[in-house]
């Protein structure tokens, strides 16, 4: 028997074949930004094409140049920014509430077989229901006000978020739980160190979807629920239609589209980051 202090390095080097399995992926940052920009260019071109056919008169269907000029004018108006601020604060408040509620419900459901059996399918069911359907009831219960809008935004977004948590936990390999037990992680510690981080990619997808539903519900709400003395992007859209202000209407539509795209970019970037650091992507 050799002495217990014999070191590996005295025998044989380990390193020559220690080439990492895959080199660090090279990143092409330009592509992820350029692709959506290209989409915008295509959209503008199609739009201009339709206008050019003369299908509808200019004052009903203005071209991109007119609308962009209108948008350029809008952004100089304080009312525009007030409407934007109100809409964004509603969106963020509603989304934040939905995150808290959806995450809590998701974690509770994932952790309890009883809850799982009883409300698991309800969550999925709610997710398929168009949230606009809630408005009449919300208005009946809470009146035409912020409360009704918030309720519908939360009802729209929370099921997707809860579902993201459930999917994330379900997809965890059983070996993670065995590892947790071997390392002595139980209860909250197991959740904190293994379950929650492991479920994160699916959770972020749930957040992304939840945001999309929150944004849609909010726009529907702002078209339906007009609170006197307050302006929001959705209300502005409705006003523009009533006053047959096509350039204004389309300028607001553009703003709503852009906000949606920015949010989507943020979530996609987060997803990509998670997938890349976990080796779930090739490039």
């Amino acid at each position: 028997m050799t002495s217990p202090t014999t070191s590996i390095s005295e025998r044989r080097p380990l390193d020559p074949i220690d080439v990492p399995a895959r080199p660090r992926p090279t990143r092409r940052p330009g592509r992820k930004v350029l692709a959506p920009l290209l989409a915008v260019v295509v959209l503008l071109a199609v739009w201009q094409g339709v206008v050019a056919t003369g299908w509808r008169p200019d004052y009903l269907l203005p071209g991109p140049v007119t609308v962009l000029a209108e948008l350029g004018h809008l952004v100089t108006l304080p009312e525009f920014w007030a409407a934007m601020a109100r809409t964004l604060s509603r969106a963020l408040t509603g989304f934040a509430l939905a995150i808290v509620i959806g995450t809590a419900i998701g974690l509770a459901t994932a952790g309890s077989a009883l809850l799982r059996a009883s409300i698991g399918s309800l969550i999925t069911g709610l997710q398929t229901m168009p949230s606009v359907v809630w408005f009449p009831l919300a208005i009946l219960l809470l009146g035409l006000g912020e409360g009704a809008i918030m309720l519908v935004v939360v009802l729209g977004a929370a099921p997707s978020i809860a579902n993201g948590v459930l999917l994330g936990v379900d997809q965890l390999p059983p070996s993670y739980f065995r590892l947790g037990r071997v390392l002595g992680a139980q209860g909250w510690t197991l959740y904190r160190h293994i379950v929650i981080p492991g479920a994160l990619p699916a959770y972020v997808s749930g957040l992304n979807q939840g945001w999309a539903f929150a944004w849609r519900s909010l726009m529907a709400g702002e078209l339906l629920v007009v609170i006197p003395g307050t302006a929001a992007l959705g209300n502005r859209l409705a006003f523009a239609q009533e006053f047959a202000d096509a350039p204004g209407l389309m300028a607001y539509m553009l703003v709503i589209l852009i906000i949606g795209m920015i949010a989507d970019q943020i979530f996609s970037a987060w997803s990509r980051y998670l997938r890349r650091t976990r080796g779930l992507t090739q490039a």
């Binding site: 590996i8 390095s9 380990l14 390193d15 074949i17 220690d18 080439v19 990492p20 399995a21 895959r22 660090r24 650091t277 976990r278 080796g279």
Partner: peptide, 18 residues
């Protein structure tokens, strides 16, 4: 375990033996 040079890599960046 002779991984001194790879301490900050993530699992997918390591070979099976590593």
């Amino acid at each position: 375990v002779r991984l001194g040079r790879y301490v900050d890599l993530r699992p997918h960046e390591l070979s099976g033996g590593m």
